[in-house]
Nucleic acid binder design. Structure first.
Length: 591
DNA sequence: GCCGTTTTCGGCCCGACTGTTTTCAGTCG
């Protein structure tokens, strides 16, 4: 039976979790080894199941022991060591680790001294006073544990929120703190800046010489529900929506080091610190500096007691470490450090590289807000050279546009294009891929459009075979130029349709039909691994905002970030091309 | 448990905050 890398990786993650509890230390080297191996398996191009123990052990991060355990799983379906750990620490006990404030040491202590192995037993122990009788359990700790249990599920440690929720919150906090006196720089960092699809907590960083007033202002924000921690450099709060926001303040001269540090990922940072160490330096959130007895604290930096190598900007620090500037979206310790060291980072897409937008709705679609003229003016205002108007086609019962209205819009578009003379306008539509792959209107009518996006909007629960057939049929339709939001997923709300991507990529590469990277935050569809594989298979992409209002043209930056995260080469994105090249390509794929 | 132009042992990234501890352990990121 084939075992996927995801299954193997999940077992390694479980081994790490159970080992952390078993050894009573989150920093136990064995725990980190399992975590590193998990990441190594996830980064593997080939199937781990197909590799011999010797070949597995050659993978960086996998040694003889873990290679053996992977083989054991592939060959027998189980891992004796894992079963043994599961026996020692049942799921209800592992669940205690999810209570905020509880770590492996305390969970083990509770089990050892009181036989507490579940959240229910912990509640009972808190109520009958037995927990309070333990060494090191003061009044505050008991209270915090009760709060932690209440918060469980609401803001437990592994609760993640979709980026569409976290990013606007982060931008509100950044904007509010930007108005506070003494704030020199402010930005969000963390997994949000790396543009992950879901976010554990929001990290906000401020450069200031007056941290106390900034932390006070932060606590006064209206979003704040309760305070978790409040110190001189770090304040943690939970919003009314249950999202944790951490504020860190650093001296202005340390902003680059701090951004690097708090953007992570953790694994990326460890790699950087190892490089620093090799050079006789040390890297923390305050500076890259000469290693020595003196720790690089803000005080030491201010006193000039330290030899600082770099601190002010991320680029300076990367350069000092012999690395090209690595965009945040790539910082996952997934080979990017090696690429940056060799000067081999690909040319990635920046928002300003996008010369056109190819999926845009006007108020002709019932759900579009702005009229054609306003949308086009906004596109020109953003420097776009071409724009496709793609209102919903007639099969979408709520918002679909009739033939007559489409033809009338086409006239308006041609006139406007002529009048303005500063942007190429493509008349298009967003078609609905039917249950069996059929499209709106008829082939003759479809041939009259300049640009057609075909998308799945209905029948989301068909099996992979049926979904693949309908999507491939749309890809192969001669008039279709792009497939919109490939899986129709909504992050945090619905998973998206099942597709046999192999067939999708084959059809897209053969016909030239582009795969859209939909920049709307709730979608970010296609997903990063899909884009990566599609690029490897020779597919062409477009980054589109799916704007339903002129202001939503700004979402292009999210699409570019998604493409960077997938390490997509700039030239694989058709709307980075100059107008003539783009238009020539469109007529070719429609031919 | 992994790793090695210091290579088979002895290292393994760094710091803040809380609560309880008279100097630090645990948790978290």
């Amino acid at each position: 039976m084939a075992r996927t890398n995801d299954e193997v990786a999940r077992l390694l993650a479980e081994l790490a979790e159970l080992t952390e509890l078993d050894e009573g230390s989150p920093n136990a080297f064995r725990v980190r080894a399992y975590q590193n191996a998990e990441r190594a398996v996830r980064g593997l191009e080939e199937d781990a199941a197909g590799l011999s123990a010797a070949d597995l052990a050659k993978v960086k991060g996998i040694g003889k022991s873990i290679a053996g355990r992977i083989r054991e799983y592939v060959d027998t379906g189980s891992i004796a060591k894992l079963d043994q750990l599961r026996e020692a620490h049942p799921p209800s006990k592992l669940a205690l680790m999810k209570v905020p404030g509880l770590g492996p040491k305390t969970v083990q202590q509770l089990d050892r001294e009181l036989g507490i192995r579940s959240v229910e037993a912990l509640v009972a122990g808190l109520d009958d006073g037995s927990v309070a009788s333990l060494e090191g359990m003061g009044e505050r700790t008991i209270e915090n544990l009760r709060d932690g249990i209440t918060a469980l599920g609401l803001s437990s440690k592994d609760r993640r929120v979709p980026i569409a929720t976290a990013l606007p919150l982060a931008e509100r906090v950044v904007a509010a703190l930007g108005n506070v006196a003494g704030v020199v720089e402010v930005a969000y960092a963390g997994s949000l800046r790396r543009f992950r699809e879901d976010i554990g907590d929001v990290d906000v960083l401020v450069a200031t010489d007056h941290p106390a007033s900034v932390h006070r202002a932060f606590l006064d924000l209206e979003e704040v529900d309760r305070t978790i921690a409040a110190g001189e450099t770090k304040t943690s709060i939970v919003t009314r929506d249950g999202i944790q926001v951490d504020l860190r303040t650093v001296p202005p001269g340390s902003f680059g080091a701090a951004m690097l540090y708090f953007t992570g990922s953790k694994a990326h940072n460890i790699r950087l610190r190892q490089r620093a160490q090799e050079r006789g330096w040390t890297l923390n959130e305050y500076a890259l500096s000469l290693a020595g007895p003196q720790a690089p604290t803000p005080r030491a930096l201010a006193a000039g007691d330290l030899e600082v190598v770099a601190a002010g900007t991320e680029a300076d620090i990367y350069a000092a470490l012999g690395l090209a500037d690595i965009p945040p979206e790539l910082r996952e310790d997934d080979g990017e450090v090696e690429l940056a060291a060799g000067g081999d980072l690909p040319a990635l897409v920046r928002a300003e590289d996008l010369r056109g937008d190819l999926h845009d709705h006007t108020d002709l679609s019932g759900d579009g807000r702005d009229p054609l003229e306003a949308l086009v003016a906004a596109a020109v205002g953003r420097g776009l050279e071409y724009l496709a108007i793609t209102d919903h086609a007639e099969d979408l019962t709520i918002n679909g546009v009739s033939r007559e209205a489409m033809l009338s819009q086409r006239e308006s578009i041609r006139e406007l294009e002529q009048q303005r003379g500063d942007i190429a306008l493509l008349h298009g539509a967003e078609l609905n891929i039917g249950r069996h792959g059929g499209l709106d209107y008829d082939d003759r009518f479809l041939a009259g459009f300049d640009w057609l996006v075909a998308s799945v909007h209905s029948h989301l629960s068909l099996d992979a075979g049926e979904q693949t057939a309908r999507v491939v049929a749309a890809i192969r339709h001669p008039s279709v130029t792009a497939i919109g939001h490939l899986t129709a997923r909504l992050l945090g709300r619905r998973p998206g349709i099942d597709l046999d991507l192999d067939q999708v990529f084959t059809a897209a590469a053969e016909t030239g039909t582009a795969i859209e990277i939909n920049a709307a935050l709730p979608r970010l569809d296609a997903a990063v691994p899909v884009i990566r594989e599609g690029a490897r298979r020779g597919c062409t992409f477009v980054i589109s905002t799916d704007a339903h209002a002129a202001s939503e043209l700004d979402r292009a930056r999210f699409g570019a970030a998604q493409a960077r995260r997938a390490r997509l080469e700039r030239d694989r994105v058709a709307n980075t091309w100059e107008r003539e090249r783009f238009l020539a390509w469109v007529s070719r794929i429609r031919g």
